[in-house]
Amino acid sequence: MTDLSLATSGAGPMITGTPSPRRRQARRIVLRLAVYGLPALLILVPLATFLVYSFWITVDGQVVQTFTLANYIDFLAKPVYRGVFVGTLWLASIVAVTSLIFGYIIAYLVWRLEGRLRYLLLLLSVIPLAMNYIVKIYAMRSILGYNGFLNWLLVTVGLLEAPSKQFIFNQTAVMITMAVIYLPYAILPIFLSLERISPSLMAASADLGGRPGQTFRNVVLPLSLPGSIVGALFVMVLALGDYLTPQMVGGNQGFTFGRAIWSQFGMAFNWPFGAALAVVLLLSVVLIILAAAVISRHARVK
């Protein structure tokens, strides 16, 4: 707030007056503070707040400001939260691997195309990014649902006698929906890592008698894999925090760590415990991003 007022009062005279170099210097510092300081403030203050909260504790529905590790011990001691955390990590990994496989296939096919068609298809494959996320979940639900498109199709074709409930409100539905929603996030980085491979390398491989299969195995795949894994890790981070998709299509198996965090707020009023769970989630996300950074740096050196 103070930063904001400084910025506006500093920016005002800059347009109108003819200031001395020293004042200009001061103004530049103020402006820089506003440009860098404000976003830092807006990101770091909330983060710091919930980090601090996670060391407090709730007693009789009131937050007591002490320093305690009780919330973290609770997380480790209560099998529910530990179990849900592991389950959510597992789910996110599966979504990441699925996105990696399908994303790679799609990105590779698009990349092999020539000319305009290539970018047109790339554009088409990432268009879902422009769609609202909730709308996509509802769309998936109307495809997989009891009276959904899939059931209609199967009944019409005659493969099913009556609509089946096997496609919705279970783990499979969660994985299908998440994979569909997050696929575009995998396609783009994979395509970019393919795009970076110099055509001369493949030409060299062919000149040396490498068959297409060999070229792919020995040249394309090793060169594009690190970038692709980074893309998959990115998907994993997104899937890790997504509690809405499991909630909406996962039925009685749709409980994830994000929802467990959510449940500590509202009527529960256990913000400190919720904050501690959020810190655990944040740390795992940071670890995944660090892994991605290491992989991409390693790839660049090569």
């Binding site: 639900r141 009276n147 609509p163 039925g251």
Partner: peptide
Amino acid sequence: QKRFVSTYYAGFDDGVSIFAQGGV
């Protein structure tokens, strides 16, 4: 009861939308 419950819905509209989709 959980064995019999198809899903735990999250809000007013969500419950209505699932019910209206059929099979409930």
